[in-house]
């Protein structure tokens, strides 16, 4: 029973982080139908920055500021780099995939392939069913939730968010009525990057860091975003939590790998069986 509770709780915590990460992908994906395969690597980069902050600057907490900022900047650079091809979905995928390899490879060269660990910034636990449950996990869930709320406010209640939503829906019309769509596109990349970086930093003490963690998580996040609906940030949040909870529970009843296999298979099935989920196609038609 306690295993169940733990699994559930862990699932929710992990779900909020996934939700954060998915929102970041959605901001860019929904914006211009731009698939940023490097999004996972940005998350990885954020996590490694946390490790660097801890190992060399003696402060993990610093990374909660450094990661979003630094990764946000990297995000903008990617957006800039892709300017000539941003309207072509295949070239965008290939280009961002190249960036993924680049980031992953650089991390491998700089820090090696051995998994890195960041210790929990604070040890306190509270008692749950007779065992200690880490407060840090609760902290992660709370921070993610708070940031998601701020994101919601930004997107749904501010003028910036309004313009973002308009650009997402109809970039041509938006441009014609005075909205600087490409600048918003870059800002969106910055925002997406910052969210990825923050997710990485938050999760760092809870997982082991390897250069490959990026692409693996990208597949998961992309699945979530597709199932929730492109650009539908809030639906993806829900899907993310479902996904994480399911994975958490599956891992308890089976083992970790089997749990992942089951979760992936199910998600894949959902995507394959329901064509309407794949509905809202890219905002841009292929140039002929």
């Amino acid at each position: 029973m306690s295993k169940l509770a733990f699994g559930l709780l862990n699932g929710v915590v992990w779900g909020t982080v996934l939700a954060l990460l998915s929102s970041g992908l959605n901001v860019v994906f929904g914006l211009m139908g731009t698939v940023n395969v490097a999004h996972g690597s940005l998350y990885m980069f954020g996590a490694y920055l946390a490790w660097i902050c801890f190992s060399f600057l003696d402060s993990f907490w610093l990374s909660l500021i450094v990661s979003p900022l630094a990764v946000g900047l990297v995000g903008v650079s990617i957006g800039f780099l892709l300017k000539p091809v941003r309207k072509d979905p295949i070239l965008t995928v290939l280009g961002t995939f190249g960036i993924t390899i680049l980031l992953q490879g650089s991390t491998l060269v700089l820090w090696g392939g051995t998994p890195r660990r960041v210790p929990l910034p604070f040890d306190s636990t509270f008692s749950l069913f007779g065992t200690g449950y880490s407060f840090y996990r609760i902290f992660v869930a709370l921070v993610s939730g708070l940031v998601l709320y701020c994101l919601w406010f930004l997107v749904e209640r501010t003028k910036f968010g309004l313009r973002l939503r308009a650009s997402r829906e109809d970039p041509e019309l938006s441009s014609a009525i005075g909205i600087p769509v490409f600048n918003l596109f870059l800002l969106g990349f910055a925002l997406g990057g910052a969210l990825a970086g923050l997710s990485g930093a938050l999760i760092a003490p809870l997982v082991s860091l390897t250069p490959e963690m990026g692409l693996r998580i990208f597949a998961i996040v992309f699945l979530i975003v597709i199932i929730g609906g492109l650009g539908k940030i809030w639906r993806s949040v829900v899907v993310a939590i479902y996904f994480a909870v399911f994975r958490g529970l599956a891992s308890i009843f089976l083992d970790s790998t089997k749990g992942l296999i089951l979760t992936f298979s199910l998600a894949l099935l959902v995507v394959l069986v329901n064509p309407s989920i794949l509905g809202r196609s890219s905002a841009n038609a292929n140039g002929s």
Binding site: L94, Q104, V109
Partner: peptide
Amino acid sequence: VGNIYPVVVGALLVLAVV
């Protein structure tokens, strides 16, 4: 340099695409 290959490939791919 050990492991530099992916970095080069990634850069080349981006270059190729753009």
